[in-house]
C-alpha cells in the first residue's frame, strides 16, 4: 500500500497525478475516433508539428500552449487545402506537413537562447506541471469531452458510413474538421505532462486496446478511458519507483496493456467462429 501512496505525498506528484488523469481521460475519448477512422498517422504528424508553434511561442514569449494550438489549427487547415490535390494521397500530405512543422520547431528551439531543451517538449516535464497548467488542461480537456459527447451520434454516423450519414443530414466534413481540432487539443494538453511523442501514445494505444475488446462505441470509449487513466497512473507510479522518465514509462505500460489485450483476444479473432444466426 505504501508503494501506492508514498509517491503522492509531495504536492508536485499530486499535480503530476492530476495532469496524467486528465490526459488519461481526454486522450482516449478523442482517440477512440482517431483509431476508428484510421487517423493515427494524422495524430502523429499533429503531435510533432505542434513543436513549431511551441518554439515560436517560446521565442515570442507567449504561453506555449497557445502556440501549439495555433500550429495544430494551421496544420489542420493546410491539410484540408493540400488534400484537394488528387495527385498526392492524404498520407503523403500528412507526412510532409508533420515533418515540415517539426523541423521548424527543432530549428527555432535550437536557436533559442533560453536553454529550453527539445526533450522537454518531446517527453514532457510532468514533475513541473503547475496548477495553472492543470486548470487550463481541465478547461480544454473538459471542453473536448463535452464536444465528443454532444457529437457522439454524429461521430458514429459519419465514421461508420459517411455516405448514409450525409444522406440523413450529418455534416460529415464539419464533423471531420472538429475531430482534427480535438486532436490538436489533446496534443496541447499532453504537451507539458507527457510530451508530444507520448501524446500519440495516449491518443492511440488505450483506444486501440479498447477496440479489441469493445462491442459498441460506448464500451470502447469507457474502456479506453479506464485503460488511459490506469496506464497513466500506473506508469507514473512505476516511474517513481524505478526513477525512470515518467512519459516514457507511461508509454511502456500502455504498450504492455495493448500486448496483453491483443494476446487475450487472439482466439476470438480467429476466422472460424460460429454465427448465432442463419
Amino acid at each position: 500500500m505504501n508503494w501506492l501512496t508514498e509517491p503522492f505525498q509531495a504536492e508536485f506528484m499530486q499535480r503530476a497525478l492530476l495532469a496524467t488523469i486528465i490526459i488519461g481521460i481526454v486522450a482516449p475519448v478523442v482517440g477512440t475516433w482517431v483509431v476508428l477512422r484510421r487517423m493515427a498517422n494524422l495524430g502523429d504528424a499533429m503531435s510533432h508539428g505542434t513543436l513549431a508553434g511551441v518554439g515560436l511561442a517560446y521565442a515570442a514569449g507567449v504561453n506555449v500552449l497557445f502556440g501549439a494550438m495555433g500550429a495544430g489549427v494551421l496544420i489542420a487547415a493546410l491539410l484540408l487545402w493540400f488534400s484537394t490535390n488528387r495527385r498526392l494521397g492524404q498520407e503523403t500530405v500528412i507526412a510532409v506537413l508533420g515533418t515540415a512543422f517539426f523541423a521548424i520547431g527543432v530549428v527555432v528551439i535550437s536557436r533559442l537562447d533560453t536553454g529550453v531543451a527539445l526533450t522537454h517538449f518531446l517527453f514532457g516535464r510532468v514533475l513541473t506541471v503547475t496548477w495553472g497548467d492543470i486548470w487550463l488542461n481541465l478547461a480544454l480537456g473538459g471542453a473536448a469531452v463535452l464536444v465528443v459527447s454532444a457529437l457522439f451520434n454524429e461521430l458514429r454516423l459519419a465514421s461508420f458510413d459517411h455516405v448514409q450519414a450525409e444522406q440523413v443530414g450529418v455534416h460529415v466534413e464539419l464533423v471531420q474538421a472538429i475531430l482534427v481540432l480535438l486532436l490538436a487539443v489533446v496534443v496541447v494538453i499532453s504537451l507539458r505532462a507527457v510530451g508530444t511523442i507520448m501524446a500519440v501514445t495516449m491518443l492511440v494505444t488505450p483506444a486501440a486496446s479498447a477496440r479489441l475488446l469493445a462491442r459498441n462505441l460506448r464500451q470502447m470509449t469507457l474502456l479506453g478511458v479506464v485503460f488511459g487513466v490506469g496506464e497513466g497512473v500506473g506508469g507514473l507510479l512505476v516511474s517513481y519507483h524505478l526513477s525512470s522518465s515518467p512519459g516514457a514509462t507511461i508509454g511502456l505500460v500502455a504498450a504492455a496493456v495493448f500486448a496483453v489485450t491483443f494476446a487475450i483476444t487472439l482466439p476470438r479473432r480467429m476466422p472460424h467462429h460460429h454465427r448465432p444466426f442463419g
Binding site: T119, R125, S239, S243, S244
Partner: peptide
C-alpha cells in the same frame, strides 16, 4: 537534465 520523481521528492 530532469530529475527522477523520487530524487525530486
Amino acid at each position: 537534465d530532469e530529475p527522477a520523481a523520487k530524487s525530486l521528492a
